[in-house]
Design a protein around this nucleic acid. Structure first.
Lengths: 335, 335
DNA sequence: ATGAAAGCGCTAACAC
DNA sequence: GTGTTAGCGCTTTCAT
């Protein structure tokens, strides 16, 4: 691999001039610069990033921490970050905590060393730890908000409120919520939104969990749901709701006739599940690009006031929810 | 951030001794070592990886290139790599080509600078390019094999052979194959396996494509499939097959009565699709860990002969394939 | 406009 | 067993 010295020798200039020519900034004779760039290309010179990092303290990398790369909720977020990073010619480090909050501090610490900024996706760190890390390295939170730290999240409380309101309108007075991972922060927001809405609406809400935020997690909960006798269930995410939906139908339960089911995220494509899943749609995929751009801004100016964005979500009603049976019959009787 | 100098000063030794104490290797007075380690911890010292990388040429990172992080086929592979990397205290760089082969060279070049080894997942680079890169940095290929380069792949040809054989036994004599991305190498192997099997079995095989390897890609192909009049379809992957299956059923086509559908990968969970998808199961998720371990071995000893592993796959017959209707009626008539 | 030289934090001879 | 020192490849004053 050619070094800056090789280029300098070949172009007949000093290494300082090579550095200047390549990095644009300082003033260099245009002719000299042209020659340097030419020979650099001829030698297929690539600046050693470690050396540059050592000299400048800027590594040109962003670090991403998430609970599970193979969770379809996170994939698009990572893809968004990757895209922005590539455009800005940043490298992307990835660490996967495998849903184990206890390894996060170590992973973050290790990441921090090789990156200029951090993007923590659905981190389960304590607020204080987040602040500590954010102090060391510019940090953006995804799907989690902490005072004083940049972040973008879906307004899960509002979404759940909309969802429960919808169910209440359909006559559901006793609803079950299948919670996700215990440590999930978005889970907290969801529970908060649900309980507040339940109080307001006079709905009897029961929370069950934790459950793995997966298709299998939803299926495993089916028996419990059926036994609960509730007329409507809300899942922590679409995957849980989907698994539940398929399993209860196999058990002969009519959806939405006997049981209304709703999810969260709108992560399923049209046609993946029948009947279509009522859910809360949020542009979760866009959180990746938003976070990356926030980080870029922060990197450019550390003194900026903390920014945070709460993405509004919208209720999407599909076939998996409907009026409670008695209501429906009553309506039929009246009609 | 504390440096090695701070630790040295605090512990009353030279920086060399600190380095030795922390890196284990050389002989250091146990008592001294203990003291150094203690003060290092007290100062929360973390060696600067860029500096170490500069000095040793070893970065302690692996680089991963793939076509699309959000494709569920790749997620588990990345997760496997991430896990092994974490155990070995390696960092993981990720680059996403977004299914665009033309950006791969640039991405690999950039990755190479910050990693000790490369894992190229489903790379669409030319064989020669792969060899060139592999020469610069230890490289392991995933789901792609190139002579002289370490790699692990699923034996797609064999899998497709098994699948077509199964269909032929069910009486299908005219089969359609929905191909995936044009540049996909595993796609080549699949086509090769299919055409060879078709010749041997006397099956009339038509290849259509390319198609996006997604659920939506499968749905988009539905009309074309129905119009083709074929009695059986094989999808490039389960996602395509799944999308197709849901769409044709919406169109009123009986599966497998009227149309048999099969996929590849066995990536869908039990219950996600009805009827269950006949497919080829391969431990694709394990390719991640296998690749990471291969890379580890290669990193430890560059002189090792190239290793390559071809994972056998197995046919999984579920409800989406069945005998052609005429055969079935004939059987009924006889029985 | 360009060159010389001092580091960035660490490792690895090489001395003692 | 421990200290000294010369780099690793680059950026960045400071001279000129």
């Amino acid at each position: 691999m050619a070094t800056i010295h090789d280029v300098a020798r070949e172009a007949g200039v000093s290494i300082a001039t090579v550095s200047r020519s390549l990095n644009g900034a300082a003033r260099v004779n245009p002719e000299t610069r042209r020659r340097v760039i030419e020979t650099a290309e001829a030698l297929n010179f690539r600046p050693n990033l470690a050396a540059r990092g050592l000299a400048t303290g800027k590594l040109g990398n962003v670090g991403v921490l998430l609970p599970d790369v193979s969770n379809p909720f996170f994939g698009p977020i990572v893809a968004g970050i990757a895209q922005v990073a590539q455009e800005r010619r940043f490298g992307m480090f990835l660490a996967d905590s495998r849903e184990d909050p206890s390894v996060e501090p170590e992973l973050v610490a290790r990441l921090s060393q090789q990156v200029d900024g951090l993007i923590l996706i659905a981190s389960r760190l304590e607020d204080d730890d987040v602040r500590v890390f954010a102090q060391r390295r510019p940090t953006v939170l995804v799907n989690r908000l902490v005072d004083g730290v940049d972040g973008v999240a879906i307004d899960a409380a509002q979404g759940m409120d909309d969802l429960l309101t919808h169910l209440a309108r359909m006559g559901h007075t006793s609803v079950l919520y299948l919670d996700g991972p215990a440590a999930s922060r978005s889970g907290r927001a969801k529970r908060a939104g649900l309980t507040a809405a339940a109080d307001r609406l006079g709905v009897d809400l029961r929370i069950a969990g934790p459950h793995a935020p997966t298709f299998a997690g939803g299926r495993a909960a089916a028996q419990k749901v059926v036994d609960s006798g509730r007329t409507a269930v809300i899942g922590f995410d679409d995957l849980i709701a989907w698994g539940l939906l398929t399993r209860v139908r196999e058990m002969g339960v009519d959806v939405p006739g006997r049981l209304s089911i709703a999810g969260f995220d709108d992560s399923l494509d049209e046609g993946m599940v029948t009947p279509g899943l009522t859910t809360i749609a949020a542009r979760s995929g866009s959180m990746g690009t938003i976070a990356a751009e926030m980080l870029e801004r922060r990197l450019a100016d550390v003194t900026l006031p903390p920014a945070s964005e709460l993405l509004r979500s919208t209720l999407v009603v599909r076939g998996s929810t409907g009026p409670v049976e008695s209501t429906r019959e009553a309506a039929r009787a009246i009609g």
